[in-house]
Design a binder for these strands. Structure first.
Length: 487
RNA sequence: GCCCGCAUCGUCUAGCGGUCAGGACAUCACCCUUUCAAGGUGGUAACCGGGGUUCGACUCCCCGUGCGGGUACCA
């Protein structure tokens, strides 16, 4: 077993039942980072529940992990020394383990019907007792079991929880102790021949040489079952790290009603993988310094079990927005140009870079891009009313006319020239204004902005003019003037 | 019901017996600014409650409370 590659070996074992939830992905991120640069990160598909199994979700999961940059060294698509990495393809391994456990007396066949189990639990509940299996089939002899099976009776295999207690030192929560009295005789092998999570996890983590299991704290109560199984099989268990839950704004477990909860939703909202990773990392981890911007590579270098948080964290979109803005500004313009590509109509590369440069400092999410640069893709159509919402019609017209005349000339000075024009106009006897200089300049610029982009919010005018070019700019001003003149 | 976990500003967090309880997001004010941003400066804002232990508790222990999880032939 010592020949498996990698120092640490950590895994992510999602169940293909839909889409990757933010909580799942954070666990994957932690596992990936905690494996460290010298360790290995593996992906294993946990498709042991035939009822909820949705095969089409597997490619989506892998795509999501890939988008985030969580490269796995071993997995269903790329194989590895422990292949296959899909549990439904490993059934014989679980069956063998179950048989061994029964032979060892650590597990036993159970023939109880669902009805009996339901009634049992209901009765226990009413009596104020913990709801657990009562051991009804614990004493069935091997011979009787064989006969009943031969007779067509369906059976499951249950773990025979021994008396005593289960202890382990959790990497996040510290020393844990469970009285085995409170641990149920868990079903390990279902009647359909598939293992439950509890068996599959133990068998696979052992066979795959997993050194640390990182999973959500909701698994804490079942850890004793796993420990008992490892011990019965004579295997050394991995270390366990139970990470706290991710909560919605109302502090309940994150769910649909909290809005975006899957990674693909975040992606559609215009979040960068860099930002999502950075954000998720701080939901349960911190470096202990005041640094807060981390790339995935840095996280993989820095993250350690010792600094994992034990209390749950609330998912806060505002903070994600902030981090996303930070990462947008950190990206080289060329890269940002690639990222905004899907958000815009087909555009030549150099134009895309120009647009990226214009929006880079003013957006927090990619989905803001289309509106901000709409001027590049459609002719403005600001109405006459809109155009003179800032200044009297005659004044607005005068400014546009003078601006048009001032257009030719070095771009660098355009800003100054426009300001000069506005100031001259302000002191004009007829067309002038009582507005303070600042406000008048501002109003004038808004008229021009409206004429050029038909938007009240746009990239800086000089950028817009530079992007449009003198010819198109002039045409747009002319069109605006025409609308202003028309009745 | 039974078992278990968690508990610092609204949020993410630092703190690991002695700090004016720090940073960030959000928020407010101001500055910069032709819009929106970005940036700068400053402000408001927290140790759940009660007992202990200790010369001294946000830090350790107990109880309570609150929140959360588990209690399936789901993961």
């Amino acid at each position: 077993m010592g020949e498996l590659p990698g120092n640490r070996r950590l895994r992510f074992a999602p169940s293909p039942t839909g889409e990757l939830h933010i909580g799942n992905v954070r666990t994957a991120l932690f596992s990936y980072c905690l494996a460290g640069e010298r360790g290995r990160f593996l992906v294993r598909i946990e498709d042991t529940d035939r009822e909820r199994y949705r095969p089409e979700s597997v490619p989506g999961y892998l795509e999501t992990l890939d988008w985030l940059g969580l490269r796995w060294d071993e997995g269903p698509d790329r194989g590895g020394p422990c292949a296959p990495y899909v549990e439904s393809e490993r059934l014989p391994l679980y069956a063998t383990a179950a048989e061994r456990l029964v032979a060892l007396g650590a597990a036993y066949p159970c023939f109880c019907s669902r009805e009996r189990l339901d009634q049992l639990r209901a009765a226990q509940r009413v009596a104020g007792l913990p709801t657990r299996y009562d051991g009804h089939c614990r004493t069935i002899s091997a011979q009787e079991a064989g006969e009943r099976r031969a007779g067509g009776e369906a059976a499951v295999t249950r773990l025979r929880v021994p008396p005593g207690e289960s202890r382990w030192d959790d990497l996040v929560l510290g020393p844990q102790r469970f009285d085995n009295e409170t641990v149920d005789d868990q079903v390990l092998l279902k009647s359909d021949g598939f293992p439950t999570y509890h068996l599959a996890q133990v068998v696979d983590d052992h066979l795959m040489g997993i050194t640390q299991v990182v999973r959500a704290v909701e698994w804490l109560p079942s850890t004793p079952k796993h420990l008992i199984t490892y011990a019965a099989l004579g295997w050394v268990p991995p270390q366990f790290a139970h990470v706290p839950l991710v909560l919605g704004p109302d502090h309940s477990k994150l769910s649909k009603r909290h809005g975006a909860q899957t990674v693909s939703e975040l992606r559609q909202l215009g979040y960068l993988p860099e930002a999502v990773v950075n954000f998720l990392a701080f939901l349960g981890w911190s470096p202990g310094t005041e640094e807060e911007i981390f790339s995935l590579a840095e996280l993989r270098q820095r993250m350690s079990f010792e600094r994992l948080q034990s209390s749950p964290a609330v998912f806060d979109r505002q903070r994600l927005d902030y981090l996303n803005g930070v990462w947008i500004r950190r990206l080289p313009v060329e890269t940002l140009a690639e990222r905004i590509l899907p958000w815009l109509p087909a555009t030549p590369r150099d134009r895309l870079v120009a647009l990226a440069a214009m929006v880079q400092e003013r957006i927090r999410r990619l989905d803001e891009v289309p509106q901000l640069v709409a001027f590049a893709f459609s002719e403005p159509e600001a109405s006459a009313e809109a155009l003179c919402s800032e200044l009297p019609r005659a004044t607005a017209r005068a400014f546009l006319e003078r601006a048009r005349a001032a257009l030719p000339g070095p771009q660098g000075t355009l800003q100054d020239r426009l300001r000069e024009i506005a100031n001259e106009l302000r002191s004009d006897a007829e067309l002038g204004s009582q507005l303070p200089e600042k406000q008048f300049v501002r109003a004038s610029m808004q008229v021009l902005r409206l004429g050029l982009t038909s938007a009240r919010v746009s990239p800086p005018l000089t950028d817009v003019v530079a992007y449009l070019g003198a010819e198109r700019t002039e045409a747009r001003i002319a069109a605006a003037l025409e609308r202003l003149s028309a009745e």
